[in-house]
């Protein structure tokens, strides 16, 4: 339900507060996201970093309301700030929309878009690339088929697909991995969305193409002035692309702040561990690859207290395994969820 126009913080595009997502299954309920809060500002790139199963993709799927069955948002709010032509801002509560409602579809068509990890499976195998880009263009605005086709060729050229007049009639399996990823990006930026959600855009492609994709996203952000939510397990990607990062572990954001600050001075023991493992790889001293001991507990397992305590190097018995830590604000722009800082505060 859209609330009447109201003055919100003009620079905030979307505000996620205390988001919970759960998957009820026969074996029990999996709490994939437990109380996540973050905001994305206009023109900003937020990176969400975490291991597999940390809930980072699920959070973005909740924003688009495309959670796979039987997932559902059980608590929290996702507030979308839509800029109207007259300059006013209208806030829409996404969690209150039906996931197949026309309001939700309107947001998906014009306001946000998605890039997925595997372009091969994220694009239909039996429709041409052009067909799928044109579909998006025509959903977003009133264009004839011919206009949309010309626009699609322009888009494909702008993302660096050579010979787009020919490629537009190709099927996904006729393109190389890099070209497919570019085609998906062309489709995503089709209606000049205000938020581009990139879910592991560099995981499925090889290293040289990774670099190209990242440069492409950077230049697109500069020219289109859109916000990007980039989801990845790769600290290198966020280091180059993101302004701020959120580190997720077991469905919670354990640390959030400007990318430079966190990389220079990580506070949460988990973030510290993550950075150490990357740094030790960088020195390519194979004997001393630092890892975080232990594994992510199974989603069904209930971990009392802080979810990271079984693997934590700064584990405080009696505290960390009993009480869940609260969010602690370290600076105006930084927060961490750890007992170490809570007790000091």
């Amino acid at each position: 339900m859209a609330t009447p126009s109201l003055r919100a913080d003009a620079s905030t595009l979307v505000e996620v507060t205390d988001l919970h997502v759960e998957f009820p299954t026969r074996e029990g309920v999996v709490h994939a996201v437990r109380g996540v809060s973050f905001a994305i500002r206009e023109g900003e790139t937020l990176g969400i970093v975490g291991e597999s199963g940390s809930g980072k993709s699920v959070s973005s799927q909740a924003m688009l309301r495309i959670l796979p069955r039987p997932g559902r948002i059980s608590r929290g709010s996702i507030r979308w700030h839509q800029r109207l032509p007259d300059g006013a801002v209208r806030a829409t509560e996404i969690t209150e929309l039906g996931d197949r409602s026309s309001q939700m579809n309107a947001l998906r068509r014009r306001e946000m878009s998605l890039i997925m990890q595997e372009p091969m499976s994220a694009l239909s195998p039996v429709h041409t690339i052009g067909n799928q880009i044109v579909e998006r263009l025509r959903l977003g605005g009133s264009m004839t088929r011919a206009e949309a086709r010309l626009k699609a060729i322009d888009l494909m050229r702008s993302v660096g697909i050579p010979n787009p007049e020919k490629r537009i009639d190709a099927y996904t399996f006729e393109l190389s991995g890099g070209m497919r990823q570019r085609a998906m990006i062309a489709m995503a930026i089709g209606n000049a969305p205000r938020l581009l959600i990139a879910d592991e855009p560099t995981t499925a492609v090889d290293v040289t193409i990774q670099a190209q994709v990242i440069r492409l996203l950077q230049s697109l952000q500069d020219s289109l002035r859109m916000s990007i939510l980039i989801i990845t397990h790769d600290l290198g990607v966020v280091a180059t692309l993101a302004h701020r990062i959120a580190v997720m572990y077991r469905g919670e954001i354990v640390e959030l702040g400007p990318v430079r600050d966190i990389l220079k001075d990580p506070r949460h023991p988990y973030t510290q561990g993550l950075l150490r493992s990357v740094a030790s790889l960088e020195t390519s001293d194979e004997d001393s690859v630092a890892t975080i001991p232990g594994v992510v507990p199974h989603p069904f397992e209930v971990v009392p207290g802080c979810p990271f305590h079984p693997r934590c190097s700064a584990f405080m018995p009696g505290v960390c395994d009993r009480v869940a830590p609260e969010r602690t604000r370290l600076a105006p722009d930084r927060e961490v969820r750890c007992h170490i800082y809570q007790s000091r505060a």
Binding site: Q61, L64, I66, P68, R100, M104, N105, A106, L107, R108, R109, S113, L114, M116, E118, S121, A122, L123, S124, P125, V126, H127, E135, R136, L139, G140, M187
Partner: peptide, 24 residues
């Protein structure tokens, strides 16, 4: 994923069902 992708694009549900899975 491509059905999820089509949903994310804002394709109306009935059209999505006919265009993608039924076709396949």
């Amino acid at each position: 994923p491509y059905v999820q992708m089509a949903r994310a694009k804002g394709v109306p549900e009935w059209r999505l069902l006919i265009k993608y899975p039924l076709r396949i």
